[in-house]
Structures are given as C-alpha cells and as structure tokens.
C-alpha cells in the first residue's frame, strides 16, 4: 500500500523531459534525461530520479522540488484546490528592476508567486497545504507570500483543517524592504490564531529554509520535520564566516545539525514523508478523538 503512493502519476508532476524534441538536439543536450547527483556525483537517469521522488538512490541526496512537484507527491491524486492563485506582489518601494524580475520569474516558473497555497487530502484526510518554491526569487517572502500564508492559515483555523507547510526560502524579500520584514509578524499572527483554534500546524523544512522564514512561521510549527541534508538556519554561512573568522563544520546548519541541537522533531526521508504526515494527521484527526472518548 505504501509503495502505491509513489507509483501514482501526480497531477502536477512535470519531471519527464519533453518528448517532442528533434533527434539531433536531444543528443546534443543530455540534460533532462540525465542528472548529476549533487551529493555523490553519480549520473542518474531522469526516470530513475523521478521514481525516487527526486532523491539519489545511492547517497540519499534530496534534490529541491518545485511547488507543483511537491503538491503532486504529497496530496491524494488530483485533489488540490488552490487558494488565492491570482494574488501577486506589487512594487511598493518602486525598487529598481523589481517588476521586471517578478515578470521574468512568473514566466520562468509558471507560478504567480513564491508560494502556492490550497487544500487537498492525504489518505482522505483534508489538509491546508502551504508550499514554497525556491525557484521563484529564492522562495523569498514579500507582501504577497505573507498574505497568502496568512489567508491559508486563517481558512484552516475557520474550517478546522490541519496545516502542512513545506518551507523553502532564502528569507524575507529585499525588494519590498520593511514590508517584507513585517510579513514575519503577520504570519506569526496567523500561527497564533491557529494555536488558539487548536488546529495542528506541521512545518516541514526543506532545502533551503533560512533568514526571516526560519525566524518566523517555519519555526512555529507544533511539529517540525525536516528533509535530510536540508540547509536550515538564520544567518548566511558566508556572513557567519566573515563575522567569526573561522571555518564552520561541514554539517553546520543542516537538518542533522538542528536535530542534534534540539531544534526540530524529526528528519524524514522524502519517500516516507507522505506516510508520516498521514500518521500525524490521523493522530490529530477527529476520529482519533472519538476513539479516545469511546474508550473512556
């Protein structure tokens, strides 16, 4: 049964290379068919990589996932209702080059913003999903990202549906200046409402989760999970090295480092993530409460 989930053809997955390429171009450009593992350097066939949910079968390296890919492998097939898909950033500071950058990112990623929010089910249990996409301006949080996250959490609190976050972000978005910083307070307010409503909030930190996102909603989960090897931290590695003038250990700011220092609950391999989320949802579900009451 567990295996079946990973065989499913997710509605969102776009992992296969386009088939309609001319033969000579396909030979000249092997990218898309084969991938070099950034962990062990092995050459992996795209098909193989897709089968392993974009993790390396040899060394376990986790490749970053786009938001559509993540939604595809997490939710029950074909059951995603997107919230606020038309909500986008403005350019409140008239920051040089920002509107052009947004337009280019939208073109490149097919997304409107660095986060996708919506509702679906995992093994039939409803969840509100918040998925960040690091391809879109490093998954950075400006007003639109903050607003979408706050709205998703508010809907979850109203409907009493658990929230699952997949964090992937370089932090607050510079181009919206102080308004980006204030999204940290805004999203914290939304988490406070979730807590008040007693609605569970599970944060999954994926590569990379840094800066103002680590320092706000991503660290406020009732349960915090992380993918193996994910970079998780507040300050950038280079800034820290410049500050303390010494080399940092290799595992610094990895999921494993955070686990060792007591900052996260569990590290979960991507292949087990859906199943673990399902168990967590089950434990927090209404039916679990009923079973509890029945045995009293």
């Amino acid at each position: 049964m567990l295996k079946d989930w990973f065989q499913k053809k997710p509605r969102y997955a776009t992992l296969s290379p386009p088939a309609a390429e001319p033969a000579e171009r396909r030979e000249a450009i092997p990218e898309g068919l084969m991938n070099k593992c950034r962990g062990c350097g092995d050459i992996l066939l795209s098909k193989e990589l897709e089968k392993h949910l974009k993790t390396c079968p040899r060394c376990g390296y986790h490749f970053p996932l786009s938001a559509p890919e993540r939604i595809g492998i997490t939710l029950d097939e074909g059951r995603f209702f997107e919230y606020d898909e038309g909500l986008t950033s403005l350019d409140p500071l008239s920051f040089p080059g920002y509107p052009e950058k947004l337009a280019r990112m939208q073109e490149e990623t097919g997304l409107r913003e660095a986060v996708v929010t919506g509702e679906g089910t995992i093994d039939g249990r409803p969840v509100v999903l918040i998925v960040m996409d690091s391809r879109f301006m490093m998954g950075s949080m400006g007003s639109a990202v903050g607003e979408k996250i706050a709205r998703a959490m508010e809907r979850a609190a109203d409907k009493r549906i658990p929230v699952v976050l997949f964090a992937a972000s370089g932090g607050a978005r510079m181009q919206e200046g102080i308004l980006s910083l204030m999204q940290m307070a805004k999203t914290s307010g939304a988490v406070a409402r979730l807590r008040e409503a007693g609605v569970p909030y599970i944060s999954v930190m994926t590569h990379p989760t840094t800066g103002g996102v680590t320092a706000s909603f991503a660290s406020q989960g009732d349960i915090i999970l992380a993918e193996p090897g994910a970079l998780i931290g507040f300050a950038g590695r280079r800034i820290i090295e410049q500050t303390i003038h010494q080399k940092l250990p290799d595992d610094f700011q990895t999921a494993e480092f955070l686990l060792k220092h007591g900052m996260i609950d569990r590290i979960v391999h991507r292949k087990d993530l859906r199943a673990e989320l399902s168990v967590i949802l089950q434990i927090h579900g209404e039916e679990a409460l009923h079973v509890g009451r029945a045995t009293l």
Binding site: L87, S89, L90, P92, A150, L179, Q183, A185, K186
Partner: peptide, 9 residues
C-alpha cells in the same frame, strides 16, 4: 499587522 503589506488581487 494583518494589514501590513501591499498586494495585487
């Protein structure tokens, strides 16, 4: 804080 930020719908 809920109101902070500028977005386009």
């Amino acid at each position: 804080y809920r109101k902070m930020g500028r977005v386009f719908e």
